[in-house]
Each structure stands twice: as C-alpha cells, then as structure tokens.
Amino acid sequence: MTKVQTDESIIKKNQIKAGILKAVTILAAAITVLILGFLIVYILVKGVPHLTPELFAWEYDSENVSMLPALINTLEMTILTLAVAIPFGIGSAIYLVEYASTKNRFVPVVRMTAETLTGIPSIVYGLFGMLFFNSMFGISMLSGALTLAIMVLPVIMRTTEEALLSVPKSYREGSFGLGAGKLRTIFKIVLPAAMPGIFSGIVLSIGRIVGETAALIYTAGTFTKAASSVFNSGRTLSVHMYLLSKEGLNTDQAYATAVVLLVLVIIINFISGRIASGVQKQHGEA
C-alpha cells in the first residue's frame, strides 16, 4: 500500500516538474513573440498617423522632411548592388557546384572566405568601402553599392549553391544524354530548375540592402537629393531614418519613416517566405 503511494507521488512530482519545464519554454516563446508584436504594433500605431503627403514630396527640405528622395535612392542602391552581386554570386556558386571537383583545394578556401564575409560587421565594410572605393569613385552611390555588393555576395552564393545542389542529377544526365554541352545544360536546364531558390536568396539580399546603414554613411554619404548619377552621393531610407532620429527634431517624421521601412521589410520577408515554402513543396512532390 505504502509502495503504491510513493510511486504515485513520484509520478505526480515528475508531472509537476514536466509541467514547469514546459511552461518555461512556452513563456520564453511568448516573450519572443510579444517583443516582436509590440515593436510592430507600437511603430505602426505611432507612425501611421504621421504618414502625410508632404513626406512624399519630390524634393527634400527641412520643412517637409520628405523621404521620397531617400526611397528613390534605396531603389537605385538595391538595383546597383544586385547588378554587381548577382553575376558574381551566381557565377561563384556555379563554379563550386558544377565545375570544381570535390578534391579541389580551392573550394574550401572559397567557402571559408565566404563564411568570413558573412561574419564581418557592416561598419567594417563601411570602413573598407571608405578606404578603397571612395578613393576611386568618391562618396557616391557607386561606392556604396560596391561595398554592399561584397556584403550580400555570400548570401547569394550560399542560397544559389543550395539551390543548384538540390537540382536532381538526372536532369543534368538527361541533358548530356541528349547531346547538350556543359554550358547549355547549366543555362537551359540547371539554372531554370534552381531559379526559385536563387530568387529567395536575392530577395533576402534586398532586405539586407534596404536595412543597411553603417556601411553606407561614409560610402554613399548622406546627401538629401535623389542621386541623378551613380557618382552622386545619396542617402538611402535607413540612413535617412538614422539621421532623423539622431537630430531628434522630427520625431513624428522618424516614426513615419520607421513605418515605411518596417512595411518594406515585412513585404520582402513575406515574399522570400512564400518562395521558400514553394521550393519546399516542389521538392516534396519531386
């Protein structure tokens, strides 16, 4: 009789312990979600009422604090950066996956340097861009874009590599069997099949470019006009946002700018999430 009781009490004790452990993980997850939710709701609630038409005036002046020039610069910066980073990123991945043999000593070096690039903080990229690209192109959109291109290169490389690796071998063998050369196989068969994966990497990079500040302040600079040439300086939206909140004079406008940035990032994330889940489904079917 007593033995049964102790067994029961042990079971009960274990159940209580288990309940506590479970509760702790739920609590932590709740904290994570609540922080994110609070941040988004707070910025939306405080910022949306300040999204006035003046904030989207064509020209910036200290009266209207327009963010439109900065938005245009962000778009320019994104296109310029991707124009450099995509060919190099995809080219590297093609070499690593399609050409290099597994015993190639060159491959681990490329992987290691790409990993190093991933870990370098954006301010270090900013310093490098300032020392290297500025000496050639001055403080300009081009210097900023080249700096960011190095920064997002490993992102595009890694996602493209994964996408290429996930293309079944039989696709390539089929193409070779029909008499196509290596190049033709890569461009007509492998790359199209890997496209969704590559695209999700590009979208991820867009997110990085849109949100970047530290690497741009001293490379692309803080000029308030929309850059009419790649050799002009121009502030992107994130840089604009930083300067607004640093000056502390236009807090309302800073809130509104934060809303625009946040919404952009949410859209970008949503798109890349959709693509990624599409890729998974595709693979599930195959």
Partner: peptide
C-alpha cells in the same frame, strides 16, 4: 507563424531596432 515571426525579427533593420530602443 512563430517561424515567420523569428525570420522577420532577423530581417528588421538595426535602425528600426535602434529607434524602438530610443522611443521605448
């Protein structure tokens, strides 16, 4: 939903976090 939330947290720019820190 949770996973998308965590991904979004990773994507929010540091200036936005900084601004949130500043005002909250």
């Amino acid at each position: 939903v949770m996973k998308a939330g965590v991904e979004l947290m990773a994507g929010i720019p540091s200036v936005v976090y900084g601004f949130f820190g500043l005002v909250v």
